[in-house]
């Protein structure tokens, strides 16, 4: 290794180790607990998000999305109570139809596909945000 390269590597190592030792010297038990809590919540959320039920629900929602999108748009125009039951029925029909379709054409759902879906489809984005909010409220916000 050339001398300059070696110097650069040594400098990086020195910077890195100084940062690590400062971090270690300043960390407190509560910070570590908190980190542990965050890691646990993340794992729990990932676990839930990748569970067969959620994956199939996502696939269902994906199939139902074309129908759901205009329906969700309608929600914003509805007054309180007005036509809610009818709307709920139509949403549930759409989801059931989507679920039937998923059962008829089973296939793997990847994270890439999920992200693509999220970007392309506002209804999916809303549904996923709801779900993540729900997971967050269950695991992250709940008092330990």
């Amino acid at each position: 290794m050339a001398l300059e390269e070696q110097n650069l590597v040594d400098a990086f190592r020195e910077e890195g180790s100084s940062l690590a030792s400062a971090a270690l010297a300043s960390v407190t038990p509560r910070m570590i607990n908190r980190l542990g809590g965050v890691a646990e919540s993340t794992i729990a959320a990932l676990d839930l998000l990748t569970s067969p039920d959620i994956v199939s629900l996502l696939a269902t929602l994906q199939k139902a999305a074309p129908t759901l999108t205009p329906l969700l748009e309608e929600v914003s125009e509805l007054g309180p109570g007005e036509g809610m039951r009818g709307l709920a029925k139509r949403i549930s029909n759409a989801v059931t139809a989507g679920a039937d379709e998923v059962r008829a054409h089973p296939g793997p759902i990847t994270v890439g596909a999920m992200l693509k879906m999220l970007r392309q489809d506002p209804a999916m984005a809303i549904a996923l945000r709801f779900m993540l909010g729900f997971v967050r409220s269950m695991w992250v916000e709940s008092p330990k």
Partner: peptide, 21 residues
Amino acid sequence: ATFISFDYLNPPKVPQPTNAV
């Protein structure tokens, strides 16, 4: 910058200052 870390029993040592700190 550098840093010092100490307690009742252990006095601090001063490491070399770095950009990272």
